[in-house]
């Protein structure tokens, strides 16, 4: 089985990897690049734990082949903080206790950050529908939604 050489950028850094054509971007991120912050919850695009951005668009990395990443800019949870400075969403998630077990948290943060980049003033309903593809089994979503809305308000106030 011949492997495919891929060059891409992950969280701003140039990366090169060889992947089996059957390997997903999620496989590559975790097993090949050591970026295990992106989680596999289902492998079928139903849970959102593997959410990443590709050229600014939110996707499930389990539903994209590693080979498709050629030339793409990929964003993962590891790239959300700016050096030692946490992203406001990360701060608010801790402050609001918007996580319990934390397994869905990386995907939700990636998705929520992408939402706020598209829509700095989402309504509660918009947040809920944007995050409908990110399953959380612990929280009942209440504190997650509040954390996202609070972050959006804070970012708007700061600007």
């Amino acid at each position: 089985m011949s492997r495919i050489h891929v060059t891409a950028r992950v969280n701003g850094d140039k990366v090169e990897f060889l992947c089996d054509p059957r390997e997903t971007l999620l496989d590559v991120l975790r097993d090949n690049l050591g970026l295990t912050g992106t989680k596999e919850g289902c492998g079928t695009g139903d849970c959102g734990a593997c959410s990443v951005t590709v050229d600014g668009r939110l996707i499930c990395s389990c539903l994209m082949l590693g080979a498709e990443a050629e030339g793409k800019e990929i964003g993962t949870v590891e790239g959300i903080a700016n050096g030692e400075e946490l992203h406001p969403l990360q701060v608010k998630f801790i402050e609001h206790a918007a996580l319990q077990c934390g397994i869905c948290t990386p995907g939700i943060l990636v998705a929520a950050k992408n939402l706020l980049e598209h829509n700095p003033a989402p309504s509660e309903t918009e947040v809920r529908y944007w995050l409908a593809g990110n399953l959380c089994r612990c929280t009942g979503y209440d504190k997650i939604i509040r954390a996202v809305l609070d972050t959006a308000a804070e970012i708007r106030a700061a600007n």
Partner: peptide, 23 residues
């Protein structure tokens, strides 16, 4: 009181190691 959880940063940065994260 409601302080930040001690493992909060681990879990919002992707650093926390779960079952499948060991190699």
């Amino acid at each position: 009181t409601r302080p930040d959880r001690p493992d909060g940063v681990d879990k919002v940065t992707g650093r926390a190691n779960y079952g499948a994260d060991a190699y």
